[in-house]
Each structure stands twice: as C-alpha cells, then as structure tokens.
Design a protein around this nucleic acid. Structure first.
Lengths: 246, 246
DNA sequence: CGGACAGTTGAGCAGCGTCAATCTTGGTGG
DNA sequence: CCACCAAGATTGACGCTGCTCAACTGTCCG
C-alpha cells in the first residue's frame, strides 16, 4: 500500500466488471466490443492524494480513465496563476484536451488516493477505427465535456457567489447519484481553496457561504462532509431547476 | 443578395480552394482525401446578420463550418439568463457540443451576414471511419475546443475586468492574423453587450475600459473599429505573454 | 427630420476580496 | 496517550472593483 509506482493495486479488474463501466468508455458497447477494449485498458496506475497524474507540458501519450478516487485539473497562466477547471469523478476521462497540441495544456492532481486506467491513445484510436460504437462513445465524451464546460462558463459569467456554490453542490450531488451513491450526503474530496478557485471566488467567501447555507437550513456542513437538507431551495438558488448533469 | 434561404450564395466553392481550408476540416488531409470530404460539404447556407443558425433544443443533425462572417454562440439558463460562450470565425466548427445529447444545448447567431458549410454528421462520421487523417482532424478540433474553453475559464475565474478585455483583444487579433488579416487593425463584429456578456462584465464597464485603453495609448477605438497601438503593453495587461490561440 | 438603438459617461452603492486573528483538524513523534 | 505542530477552515473589519441606474451623445435608416 505504501509502495508507489504503476503496479496493479488489487485483483485484475476488467472493463466488463468495472463499477463505472456505464459511465466510461464501455458505455453502449457490446460484450464482444468490451472484450476488445480491454486490450487497451490493461495498465492501471495508483496515484496517492496530492500527487500529479500528469503535469502541464507533459507529452500526450495516454488518456486516463478514473477507476476510483477523484482529481482536480487546472491550467496555469504565464503569470503563475492557476484556474481549477474540473473536478473529475470515477468513470470520467482525463487528458482529452491534450490531443491537438500533443502535450497536456493542463495538469491533473489526485484529491485523494485514486486509481486510473492508462489508455494509450494510439491504441484506442486504432481500435475506434474498427469499432464504430467505440468511436461514437469517444465523440460522445468529447461532446459532453464541451457541454459541461459551457455550463461552468455560465456559472462564472454572471452569477453571484451563492448561486455558484449552490450550483456546484447540486452538480456534485447529481454526479454522485448517477454513480449510485447518496445524493443527499457526501464528502467533498477537495479543500475550500480548490472550490473557491474553481468558482472564481476566495476561500473566505466560500467558507462564509457554507456557514450561511447552514444557517438558512439548506445544508448541514461539518468540515468536508455535506448533507443537503433542502434540495428545492438550493436548486432555486442555483437558478437551474434541475441539475446540470442531466 | 437579399434573397434568404439555403441556396448557394455564389459560385461553387470546394474545400480544396476554400480560403480557410488550413483551419477547417481539410487541415492535414491529402488532395485525394479532400476530394472525398467534398461529398460531405456540398451544402452551403447563407445566414443574415442577427439570424440564428440553430436554436437551443434543435435536434442535432449537422455540424456547421463557417466559410465567411462570424457567429456568437450562447447557452440559456432555466431562468432565462444567457451566457455568450464563443465568438466563432471562418474555418471554425459550430455544433460540436450537441453530439452526446443529440440536440443543441446552445444556440448560434450570425453577427454579420455569413455563410456556412452544412455537414451532415452521419456522413462525416462514416467518412472519418474510412479516412484516419480526417478522424484525427476531428479529434484535434474537439480537443482544441476544450483547450480554448479552459483558457476562457481562466479568464472568467479570477481576473480583473481590464485583464479580461485585453485578453479578448489579443485573442481576436491573433485569430485574424492566423487567417491572413491584419493583427493590428480589425472591426469587431459584435456589439459591446455581447463582449460584456462573454467576459462576465457589463456593457458600461467594457465601454469604460475601451476609453481607458485609448487614453493609455494601448489601442485606438472608433465604434467597432479597433487599432492596436501597443501589443506589448496589452499583452502584459492580459497576463499571457503570448496569445492564447497558439 | 426623427425615432430607435448602440455606445459613452457619471454618481453612488454593495458584493466580494484583502488582511489578519482565531479556531479546528489530522498527523507525528516523544 | 497526549502534546505539539502545520495546514485548513472560520470569522470579522474594511476598502475597492465593478454593478446599477440614469442621462446624454452619436449614428444609422426610414
């Protein structure tokens, strides 16, 4: 457990039996196609909390599919400022934005001990050329990323601080729900500073908002553990009456 | 010229002789592959200033490649608020974010009289399955869109108003330059309100900034015509020492 | 000539950032 | 087992940036 490196962390895990297969590349694929996909997804990698999966500027060779844990990804400006652009959960893919420039424009860091599938993109590309359903799944993931980014833009564009935080809580809640976890109670894997950065706020403001939401009986908070008490109220605050993750 | 509709606007234009072919789907394709691509790009459409190319919720059948003119695309929240997410120039593709949900999550509106190639996605998909170079170009465009969105997130996240506007001016300048136009002098096709919305500001603030930039000898402005006088100064303000469009 | 719309400019205000002090938590080692 | 420390989180006071509201100017087009 203490040994770092890229060895398998546990028993062999295949796509067909992976707990997040419906949300990941195998989504929509036949049994047979999934078997072929497994040639591409053999290599696993374990990343400890705080470690980087890849850095900005690293050459692009692989995509990474999150098996367990969670990551933040961020871009770094010339002046050293960073902007957190994603919080990624199991089943989601990291590294898609690196294809065109052949090097990663952003970096990804584990928020907790995590494991990923390493997907050599050249293999995936070749396989997708032969398996239309996989091709479509790749388009779908690309497209969905774009859609999600638009939603975030919406948030950062012209919304008040409380709206932003409410929207994030609802988003995270719905993403946990999709994975079969509780939608009402969860543990945030990221510190306040990351939440603040992601939302374009400061950690102090985020902290004050958590306190205020609690006072208004919208949520209960204790450190990183959040319980949603009034989903309707929170949704009204967020402005989007349904969650923005479909 | 006054006649609306979807007929060809002018003489037949093929990808091989299109002025934006290097920036569009044909990028990196062989002469032979471009010939095959033209089976997909036959249909053209003319859109007048202010008209929509597609609305949010429209079914997804086609991608659109801009041949001339420019567009804004925007998402609409449940509460009616909109957020401008892109200003699109010739050679760029519209509609990529619609694939996963099979309907357009955003809408696109012409900022000036424009024309586009209508690309039936099912045909494009089939052709890409047979032409690896086209497949790669599609990945590349998807990936680049993601990268660009990250840059915008960066901008909206934690930057002052003047930084945002400076960054937009540099971005637009560099995109015109890539297309062979002047990098120092151009006409903005969008009104102040759209710029403001895109940058997460108000029209008044944008207007004040234009005035201030002019007073500081960074640019010269007259309505929508902009001349960049001090690219270095503007870049320093923007924080990114190079343009963010490569 | 006049109406409509885009853009400019000004005055006042408030939401959120900044700075700083204090409180909690988890990890470490004696 | 507990004392200690460092990092994260909370809370408060204050000020600035950018929003709001409003009046005015310029320009295009009938």
């Amino acid at each position: 457990m203490a040994k770092s490196g890229s060895a398998d962390s546990s028993v062999a895990v295949s796509c067909g039996s992976c707990s997040v297969r419906r949300l990941c590349l195998p989504g929509g694929l036949s049994r047979e196609d999934i078997d072929r996909l497994e040639q591409v997804t053999r290599r696993k990698k374990v990343i400890k909390a705080g470690e980087a999966l890849f850095h900005a500027g690293d050459p692009f060779d692989n995509l990474y599919a999150i098996r367990s844990g969670s990551f933040k990804s961020a871009v770094i400006a010339a002046d050293g400022n960073t902007q957190v652009t994603h919080f990624a959960l199991p089943g989601e893919l990291l590294g898609l934005d690196a294809y065109s420039s052949k090097s990663h424009p952003s970096y990804a860091e584990a928020l907790e001990d995590s494991s990923v599938c390493v997907l050599p993109f050249s293999l995936l590309e070749t396989l997708a050329q032969q398996v239309p359903a996989l091709q479509q799944q790749i388009y779908s993931i690309f497209s969905d990323e774009l859609r999600q980014e638009n939603e975030i833009l919406m948030l950062l564009g012209k919304r008040s601080a409380d709206t932003r935080l409410a929207a994030l809580l609802i988003n995270i809640s719905s993403r946990y729900a999709r994975r079969g976890y509780s939608a009402n109670q969860f543990v945030l894997s990221m510190p306040r500073t990351d939440i603040a950065n992601y939302l374009g706020l400061t950690a102090e403001t985020v902290s004050r908002l958590f306190s205020r939401f609690q006072k208004e009986q919208l949520i209960r908070v204790s450190g990183r553990e959040v319980t949603i008490l009034d989903l309707i109220g929170l949704s009204e605050l967020a402005g989007t009456h349904c969650s923005y993750d479909n």
